[in-house]
Design a protein around this nucleic acid. Structure first.
Lengths: 161, 161
DNA sequence: TGATAATGATTACAGATTGGAACGATTGTC
DNA sequence: GACAATCGTTCCAATCTGTAATCATTATCA
């Protein structure tokens, strides 16, 4: 047949998966721009959030959660430690592990980070009414649940292969 | 106040922006896995799609659309050319530019690519009913329009800084 | 017309980023 | 008490990055 349906939607832009990838990358980039004003990368911000909600993890576990190899995690954490945002403590029970914790300064920065995140959320969803905003969150969570994604982790810090 | 609302949504996972970034990265990764079976990277797949819907572009323009510097575009296109998927033709009017086109073989692969993309779409939105699926696309398009995103391009081929 | 600037494709290259392997220190196993 | 496993760390080679220089072609314009 000559009239093959090449454009299912005329002047379309792909389905939900492509839109998701595109908007996700764009949102991530905007977030990166915002946290850059706090001298943070998204991964650094992710670690701070992680330490706040689950302190005392080993570096290996944290590296896993952020999706980076332990070898790279070391200089990564070094930077935050030198800035006085986190601290390494030998875990009393197991002196191999360095349990990481937020310092007071780190918690202050985290507070500012939360403000930035709220502004970011508003920015991204500016085009939607409050109802639609909640609707979108509902749909996205359904997908996230079904794909078994860990909450708030692996937010694209890993590279695409 | 001691009862500061640290968790606005109990056991929450962030707002729409975070979900978007997370799901987008996840969807992009799954797509990367799928197209890898065709020996393609997402960027290569993107170029094929681009050439199909707008042939005859210069390399510089294409590099721009994909978000990569022209210098990197050259070896990038070389690979596809060596595999016989695209061909370079001197543009008659302006012999500086290499107008890129899909070969027949490239168009065949693109057909398979479309099948993969459809399966990917279904996979990502598996958790949603057809109605909800359309609902999601509508919401995402609203956001994409408001953020003035070019359709189908820049799907995260760029790196985060 | 002819000189000069601008553009496209390509190459060259130096710097950053990547993950795996190896290494000491410590702990679990038996 | 010997041996394997784990954690943090260092080392390193391979890859990937973008900028600048280069060559060919075209536009500008006096």
């Amino acid at each position: 047949m000559s009239t093959e349906r090449e454009n299912e939607h005329p002047a379309s832009r792909g389905g939900a998966a492509f839109l998701l990838a595109q908007l996700g990358a764009h949102a991530a980039q905007r977030f990166a721009d915002r946290v850059a004003e706090l001298d943070l990368t998204p991964a650094q911000a992710g670690l701070l959030r992680l330490l706040a909600q689950a302190p005392g993890h080993s570096q290996r576990e944290l590296a896993d959660m952020l999706g980076m190899p332990p070898s790279r995690f070391v200089p990564f954490a070094d930077g935050l430690q030198e800035r006085g945002l986190i601290e390494r403590r030998r875990k009393p029970g197991d002196r191999r592990v360095h349990a990481l914790r937020l310092t007071d300064e780190g918690m202050e920065l985290l507070a500012r980070l939360r403000t930035v995140a709220r502004a970011h959320e508003e920015d991204v969803c500016q085009a939607l009414s409050p109802d639609e905003h909640q609707q979108l969150i509902g749909l996205l969570r359904r997908i996230a649940d079904q794909q078994q994604l860990t909450p708030g982790v692996h937010v694209g810090y890993r590279r695409l292969r």
